[in-house]
Design a protein around this nucleic acid. Sequence first.
DNA 1: CATGAATGAGTCTTCATTCAT
DNA 2: CATGAATGAAGACTCATTCAT
Lengths: 222, 222, 222, 222
Amino acid sequence: MTADPETKLRADARRNRDQIIAAAKEMFAAQGPDVPMEEIARRAGVGVGTLYRRFPDREALIRAVAQHNFALVLEEARAAAREEPSAWQALVRLLRQSRELRLSVQLALVSPLAWTILRNDAKTQEFRDAILDVLDGIVRTAQQDGTLRTDIGTGDVAVLVSLLLRRIPFAPDEDLLLDRALTLILDGLSARQGSPLPGAPTSAFDLMRAKHSRKEAPPGCA
Amino acid sequence: MTADPETKLRADARRNRDQIIAAAKEMFAAQGPDVPMEEIARRAGVGVGTLYRRFPDREALIRAVAQHNFALVLEEARAAAREEPSAWQALVRLLRQSRELRLSVQLALVSPLAWTILRNDAKTQEFRDAILDVLDGIVRTAQQDGTLRTDIGTGDVAVLVSLLLRRIPFAPDEDLLLDRALTLILDGLSARQGSPLPGAPTSAFDLMRAKHSRKEAPPGCA
Amino acid sequence: MTADPETKLRADARRNRDQIIAAAKEMFAAQGPDVPMEEIARRAGVGVGTLYRRFPDREALIRAVAQHNFALVLEEARAAAREEPSAWQALVRLLRQSRELRLSVQLALVSPLAWTILRNDAKTQEFRDAILDVLDGIVRTAQQDGTLRTDIGTGDVAVLVSLLLRRIPFAPDEDLLLDRALTLILDGLSARQGSPLPGAPTSAFDLMRAKHSRKEAPPGCA
Amino acid sequence: MTADPETKLRADARRNRDQIIAAAKEMFAAQGPDVPMEEIARRAGVGVGTLYRRFPDREALIRAVAQHNFALVLEEARAAAREEPSAWQALVRLLRQSRELRLSVQLALVSPLAWTILRNDAKTQEFRDAILDVLDGIVRTAQQDGTLRTDIGTGDVAVLVSLLLRRIPFAPDEDLLLDRALTLILDGLSARQGSPLPGAPTSAFDLMRAKHSRKEAPPGCA
DNA sequence: CATGAATGAGTCTTCATTCAT
DNA sequence: CATGAATGAAGACTCATTCAT
């Protein structure tokens, strides 16, 4: 639909671009978003010059990596909605898959720098909204099916997703731990029960609202 | 009970030390653990030299801030265990309070650098273990009271705590959202119900195990 | 025959490298081995960055300068051995030339820092040994010719060489003074006479032995 | 004769002063004249404040250490002249002793910084001249005795002394090596023989001349 | 007076970005 | 168009010196 930079590139140039994004993704994951540009270039097997030709500065690279990741998540979400027999199962898969995407996504969430950059990036927001859209469909259907509590909204689910994307400090066997946490959370989501929740169901729109307050630093920034 | 470096310091030196930690805490929170040392010094109202006299390098400062924060959390946990009428309520308070400590704690969790530093810091580990100890008492009591699921362990609860310590990307009204998430999670923890969980209850000890594998980089590091 | 780092460099890079070494040599001589890197860079007509690209730190630069100098001395020694009609004359020329190399060599001998660095540098040791080798040939021949005392060894001569490499404090007309000292010393070396010497002739090997005790600080270090 | 700062000091203050000079002498010898002032203070067992009360800055400390050392050398020279049966033997002892004073003196000769400071220090010059004076007496007498070559002057001897004050780079068994070198040099000095020397005998005055060109940087300085 | 805390200027070193080859 | 060399600004850290306790 959109993706200009991905089209119209000579084969080799295209390959370079992909290698750079892959390299950056790994290094961002491992060392945070301030790894030296030169190291990214080296890992990608190109010179710095080439990197800079493709991405004019670090911000552009961060944006590109984030978009790339969000696109994968969106793909996954659509596949879940499409392929799973029930909305609840789609939800389960989504939460679980998201966790698997953790390693590639979290990079973008980790640093206040990246945070600010992405908050102001239109394309990233579009992806996010598209993902929320898909999630919204799943949530509503699950609630109609009677499998999901009706006192919650898509936003609430999104929040839980985002929590599950993080690393656990110092933990051995992180995967199993997160798997168990996921199950506990799903139990909290199921229709069977109900502590009263504070506030009103948080809609997808509530989260999208965020984009109206562009240019803001993350809360807590000086 | 308290650490050595905190005692036996001339009055003014002591005050400086405190101001530096406070300043670092805020700036780490706002900008991540790589804010210029000079800015921290400025915010603390001292010269860089003073900062370096007290903390020989950035690592030492990060450690000090982390220890300071963990001490607060431990204090809170003990207060909750002591003052609340039931273990369940202690647990609820703990989860909620921890969330309030979020801003000060997360700083330490955010960067791969900080991660590695703290993973290898003995004093930090001691604090963590002490906190897990308190939590362990609460969890066992709540399970005996029949308010907490018995197929989970202290470690599982700790994981949920740590998840709730994070920021939510792009979210407006973060506090309300996390409050709702907390409630959902508590519902998942309550004794009323039970999806089968993968693995066995994760004990406090399971998490403490981590300390045996010192010196390791965070998983994902190259 | 020549070192690796000197080859395969783009023409301009190579020129820069040479200029940096020349500049460092002069400034080390004039101000000691702790002149600001930036001044060296300025004198070489490059930015600091360039200097650091070529020599990762001060130590590397010191090593490079020392190797460069030792290579010159070795060249000189070989020329003397090759071109002079007698071994004695080669010896005289060597002692005299060495004195001329004083300005460039002494820099490396002056500071405890440089001392330690070079003592642990393999390439520097190789050069030193090669020089001793040439000297050894000259010494033995001169002794067979009956022009050089036979109760001394190559090491003894080397010691005298190294003494003549130094500056004389506060002296006006340093060159003439050293020239006279050199003559006096040569008189002491000539076969004509002989006070008994303490110990046995010091061989080249005796000096090379030093390399077995690597990593040692200069005698006198705390 | 002169020494004001050494008089009129309370006993403890005096002891402090001595300890500081001793500490500085050792550290200058071991690490060069730019060791941190604080380390000198620590080794002397006093606070920096005390050090600075006694010596307003590094230069003053360097001067004090140098004067202290020169005073020792002067003492030695006088003792040699007074106690030895012949001038030649006094000369031998002087050269040998000087070598023993090496460790304490060389510190002052090592760095271009110290060099410049001392060259401009009147008291240091006085000491040097007094030493040359004593040496001059010895030299003249030895020449009259017919034991010392007459084509050399006191300055020539002084140059040889100063050469023997240095360290030998990388050498094992430095002491024996210098002992042998000393003997060779003495052989060059003895009256028995005579290569023609360049220039004229260098008098003590020739060396003293240096003080007329105050404020000059060491030859070779930028 | 002694002490050691505070200050800040001075260096080293790194890295984003530009540009010649 | 790719490369990697050059640049210089920015930040870490040290240490001489001053000054409050």
